[in-house]
């Protein structure tokens, strides 16, 4: 039983990854696609942070009275990733606004039809 629970964090991460991927692939609305992309990104944060947790440890801020700390390295990498993620989303949203101006829609099926005409 503990072995099954030990992988639970990975399974939740995988479900979130696949949920984000599904939204990106299956939905045609571009704003929803971007929300899916951000879910995909945030689940990667979870994938990085959760192996760095040490049971019984504490946040990696050195203080007297604590001996065991969680791994600080994934935290650093993910701090960078969060900021890069929001930059991606902002650029994507700017593109959505431009597409809405040029085509009057934010559904990619409709845009493709207009291109075909």
């Amino acid at each position: 039983m503990t072995e099954i629970l030990a992988d639970l964090n990975y399974w939740v991460t995988i479900f979130l990854l696949m949920g984000g991927l599904y939204i990106i692939v299956a939905h045609g609305n571009m704003v929803k696609k971007l929300v899916g992309l951000s879910i995909f990104q945030t689940s990667v944060y979870l994938l990085f942070i959760s192996p760095g947790k040490v049971l019984g440890g504490t946040a990696p801020i050195i203080a007297p009275g604590f001996e065991l700390y969680s791994n600080p390295l994934p935290h650093v990498l993910i701090l960078t990733a969060i900021v890069v993620g929001v930059a991606t989303i902002a650029l994507g949203l700017a593109l959505v606004v431009r597409i809405h101006e040029a085509y009057g829609t934010i559904e990619d099926d409709e845009v493709q039809e207009m291109e075909a005409d």
């Binding site: 946040a59 969680s70 935290h75 993910i78 900021v83």
Partner: peptide, 19 residues
């Protein structure tokens, strides 16, 4: 809960706020 307090703060500000 996973001890990543700095990341949690950034996520709450950037992910939940700005996005």
């Amino acid at each position: 809960v996973l001890d990543a307090v700095d990341v949690a703060m950034t996520e709450a500000a950037v992910g939940a706020g700005m996005s």
